[in-house]
Simulated assay, not measured.
Amino acid sequence: MIANLDLFAEPGRSYDGGMLTSFLMMTLLTQFVGIEGQVRIAGNRGPVRFARVELLRSTIPVDQQYTDFDGRFRFGFLPPGQYMVVVEYQGYDRAAQDVDVMTQSELVMIELRAPRTSSQRLAPTVSVDEYLTPKNVQKELDRARKEMKRKRWVKAEEFTRRAIEMAPDDGDSYHVLAVVLFEEGRFDEAEAMALKANDRPHRIADVHLLLAKLYLRNGNSAALREQLESYLKEAPNGPISDRIRQALNPRTDQPSPRR
């Protein structure tokens, strides 16, 4: 068993253990996503400590926090959708970036710049992917993600496979393709691509959550646990890491049996 089901039962209502476990894990794996990132100074790329970061959805504030000593921030337990991340720090221009969060957590890099003069132009904020992925590959992945938002899976697959041809060692490209195949119901192919993503360098630990979903579908509890544990190793402070720990190692307040 992955979790002590008594912890999740509602008073006066009984559940089938296997059904509740599946419901719990599917909710855990599919309901929430997250936005993680870092705030840096443009040019020297130094991290910005204690910058105010606000998260908005449809211009409505959702949450706010301050960056840590490494300039990092994280908003977890978010329903999929469109958000805006706004950063303010004394002595620098306000920066904002739109983020579309779908089936996986998003990584963003936001740069702060000093107030511009008439001879300066303010460069747009960019995604962390631009620093780590070749531009031609990123272009194809961006096209694929746009098609995914429109649920045009055939076109999304076409662009993603093109990205893989350009950079066959980029694990994140295989991950995107695995998500597309999963949405199409091609689960065996999705698993194969997700495993290829896992075998290659990748930045987003959500590949393990995708594999966990697949193993949840076919009832492979051992592989499910392995993937959730792998997620925790790669993303110990991820958006749903605490919930995964609770599911894997539930607290029990029952007293030990007397001898």
Score class of each variant (00 low, 15 high):
3 A>W: 10
5 L>P: 04
5 L>G: 06
6 D>H: 08
14 S>V: 12
18 G>S: 13
18 G>Y: 10
18 G>V: 06
22 S>P: 00
24 L>C: 05
28 L>S: 02
35 I>G: 01
36 E>T: 15
47 P>K: 14
47 P>V: 01
48 V>E: 14
49 R>V: 06
50 F>T: 15
50 F>P: 00
50 F>G: 11
55 L>C: 06
63 D>N: 15
65 Q>D: 05
69 F>Q: 07
69 F>P: 00
70 D>S: 11
73 F>K: 14
77 F>L: 12
79 P>L: 11
80 P>F: 08
80 P>T: 06
97 Q>S: 05
99 V>E: 03
100 D>A: 12
107 L>W: 09
108 V>G: 01
112 L>G: 08
115 P>I: 12
117 T>N: 09
121 R>Y: 07
128 V>G: 03
129 D>L: 10
131 Y>M: 13
134 P>Q: 09
135 K>W: 10
141 L>Y: 04
147 E>F: 15
149 K>W: 05
151 K>Y: 14
151 K>V: 11
152 R>V: 05
153 W>Q: 05
160 T>N: 09
162 R>E: 03
166 M>S: 04
176 V>R: 13
177 L>R: 13
182 F>A: 09
183 E>Q: 14
187 F>D: 13
188 D>P: 00
192 A>Q: 07
196 K>V: 00
197 A>L: 04
200 R>H: 09
202 H>R: 03
206 D>I: 13
207 V>D: 10
208 H>I: 00
212 A>C: 02
215 Y>N: 06
215 Y>E: 05
217 R>P: 00
218 N>H: 00
226 E>M: 12
228 L>I: 06
231 Y>K: 05
231 Y>H: 07
239 P>N: 06
239 P>K: 12
241 S>M: 03
244 I>V: 13
247 A>K: 07
253 D>P: 00
254 Q>A: 12
256 S>A: 14
256 S>F: 11
